[in-house]
Nucleic acid binder design. Structure first.
Lengths: 193, 193
DNA sequence: CGTCTATTTGAATGTACTCAAAAGCGGTGG
DNA sequence: CCACCGCTTTTGAGTACATTCAAATAGACG
């Protein structure tokens, strides 16, 4: 149950077993069925959610009713609406499950407690934040400079597992293009090679 | 000299004066003339740079030689190539000064030292990271959903100071459009009202 | 004043979009 | 097992927004 989390943490910091046990003792397991919300627009985001199984998406809906997927999350990823979690404001986005999923939730209080009692926790959290920040910057750069086709190719290369798992129209949404465009791009690429 | 930094820190954490003095004692002042590089593609980014005066930009150059501005930095902002700073890899981007500027640099060693001897430092750094992460997410969302005109309007609203200060073609670059497009958008907006 | 750079304008082009509809796929119930 | 339904993906035609290329105008600086 905690294996994915354990290797995720140990990849970043050396955390003794008893401290890791303290971490897991504070985490709340949660199962989500496909299509079930973890967070709905207007809710307060009270948790960081670690995905130990399944696949979620974080998306928002624009004025025309179109969904824009900001981020996917699979095993070993965290999901959170950082704006809401950190500033205690109602969330502007939604998080729901694309597959039946298993999460480990941790709230702000528990974070504070770990910060006090687990010496490596802060460094771990910082490392995660830095990784997320780097990923966000890479995404910005991609959106700024790459064509629709390039964005698709980068996605396939960067997230080969996701691209197998997630319906195409969801990938199109993540890549900021229409499903029609993605379909045409794939057709074109298939013809070319 | 340290006033901008002081208020920047105190906005986020309560830091006693003697601890703040420890912070400033580890920071290296640096002046940059307009057009001078702080970091050039291929360099290692060894510092976090706090802008106490002036204006910088962080940009990369694509295969066609076009500059893409990822981020501006004015008084009270940090500048860093996080990928290079954190992973000790050669930087893919450049940072240079759009105006004569004054910076306070801090390197990794000093960060570690502060982490040990200034109890609030880690929380401060985490808060900065979270802010940066939030800003990055807002930018992603904007790039994914907004038209060129909307991006420009958001920019003017979000950074009224920057938009007064920075040449239009630099803003165009930041907004991922050509200077020509921005010029036409401004003409159109002026005609409309 | 002359040079260099920034901004604006014009015309043609292209990438990705919208709207509309067909084809494909997967699950459910008769 | 097949027919039907809902949803995903593909295809077609027309369009729009932003781009490219080219050049004129405006502004800044020595």
């Amino acid at each position: 149950m905690f294996e994915v989390l354990r290797s995720h943490i140990l990849k970043r910091v050396k955390m003794p077993e008893e401290e890791f046990n303290l971490v897991t003792s504070l985490m709340i397991p949660k199962k989500l069925r496909k299509r079930q919300y973890l967070l709905q627009e207007g809710d307060l985001c009270k948790w960081l959610a670690f995905v130990s199984k399944g696949c979620l998406r974080h998306y928002s809906v624009d004025d025309s009713g179109i969904e824009h997927i900001e981020r996917f999350g699979i095993e070993g990823w965290w999901m959170v609406d950082i704006e809401s979690f950190q500033s205690h404001k109602p969330s502007a986005g939604n998080i729901d499950a694309l597959e039946d999923s298993e999460l480990l939730l941790i709230d702000n209080d528990s974070m504070t407690r770990l910060s006090v009692s687990v010496p490596t926790w802060d460094r771990f959290y910082t490392a995660v934040l830095e990784d997320e920040f780097k990923a966000a910057r890479a995404r910005i750069s991609d959106l700024m400079t790459a064509s629709a086709e390039e964005r698709y190719l980068h996605f396939v290369e960067t997230y080969p597992d996701l691209f197998q798992r997630v319906p195409l129209h969801q990938i199109a949404s993540y890549l900021a293009m229409t499903p029609q465009s993605l379909s045409r791009i794939r057709k074109e690429l298939a013809a070319r090679k």
